[in-house]
Computed example of a mutant assay.
Amino acid sequence: MDKRYQVFISSTFEDLQEERKEVMQALLELDCIPAGMELFPASNDDQWTLIKRVIDDSDYYLLILAGRYGSTNDEGMGYTEMEYRYAVEKNKPIISFLHKNPGAIQSSKSEQSLDGKEKLKLFRELAQKKMNKFWTNPDDLGSVVSRSMIRLTKDYPATGWVRADEIVDENSMKEILLLQKENSELKEKLQSLNTTAPVGTDKLSQGEDEIDISYVYHYINTQDKEYIGEDAYMFTWNEIFRIIAPYLIDECDESTLSKVLKNYLKDKYYDAIVLIKQQEKIKKISNSYIKPENFQVIKVQLKALGLIQKSLKNRSVKDTFNYWKLTPYGDYVMTQLVAIKNKK
């Protein structure tokens, strides 16, 4: 929804007309709505009621202070200071822009009376107790206002104004709030699913439970005769998943997964395989692999545990491989098993 902020510009008028134009231009370029004395005189009791109403309706209050204190009411307080104090009373976000060197301002735009100078001095000190910036000329003021208003609206977000046709009615707002609640609940449920095992998997073999995997090898013995050997080796489900899971972060074909398991088995049981070679007088192993039946069981079990799922990505007709990838829960379990823990 496109929101615009109304900004009340408070200052003396005659001596700061050029500066006010620069400030209004800066505010308009920020899609703000300037409001100030150009719309009404500032020395009429009836108009003071109007001024207070405009300040009430404004989102931010901006004070420009230079060399004049300005016209006063019957009690001797300047109307600009009255506006400032009223904005403070109403807790409006306020920022003051004070001339950096009041002594350098030409005399025609400066207070002439000692009383006026003293009141301006006290008012300036009052304004410096809240957020304030300094400026030297109209162009500089416009730039400072632009930068400051961007920061002010971020630090102190206000209600703002929107087009009437963009306002959401009460029923629509209730529906939006209900949908937001449902969306939040669904996100929590999804997050829980990502870190929780699927229902029913507690009855399945998993974790540190063990499984035998058969290593099949075709070999030639010292008499140059060809044989097929098969030996079973013990693994846990966590061990198997820890080895193949990183390959499934994106996706991986079944042939590669089988080779990864075979190579891990050969490394883990290297000494046992060397001993078999010696006992069987094996001269050369021509081919070796994980027994296909075992690999199918591993694949089905990991799928049943909710750790992997088949990839449905479209591929070329020539690509006939089956591809697998991690489920969100599988990704979570992999992180727990593979990621390096802090030693502290």
Rank of each mutant, 00 (worst) to 15 (best):
D15Y: 10
E185H: 09
E226T: 15
N342A: 04
K277W: 14
N73Y: 07
K343V: 13
Q106C: 12
E22M: 10
T201Y: 01
A42Q: 07
V300C: 06
Q106A: 12
M24I: 13
V7H: 04
N314F: 14
E111F: 08
E18Q: 11
K225Q: 15
K119T: 03
Q6W: 08
I249E: 10
V144W: 10
F123C: 04
S192G: 02
T320E: 10
V88E: 10
Q301G: 09
G70N: 05
I150A: 10
P102Y: 12
D31E: 08
A197T: 02
L141H: 10
A158V: 00
A104Q: 14
Y269G: 06
V260Y: 02
Q25F: 15
Y5F: 14
W48N: 03
Q47L: 12
R4S: 15
I176Q: 12
E188V: 09
I282H: 13
Y219S: 13
D331L: 08
E210T: 15
F97H: 09
K325A: 06
L114P: 12
L122F: 12
I290T: 09
I9N: 01
K117S: 10
D59Q: 00
T327N: 07
A66N: 01
T196N: 08
L190T: 09
G306T: 03
I220V: 14
L257S: 02
K21Q: 11
P198H: 07
D31L: 08
F8D: 03
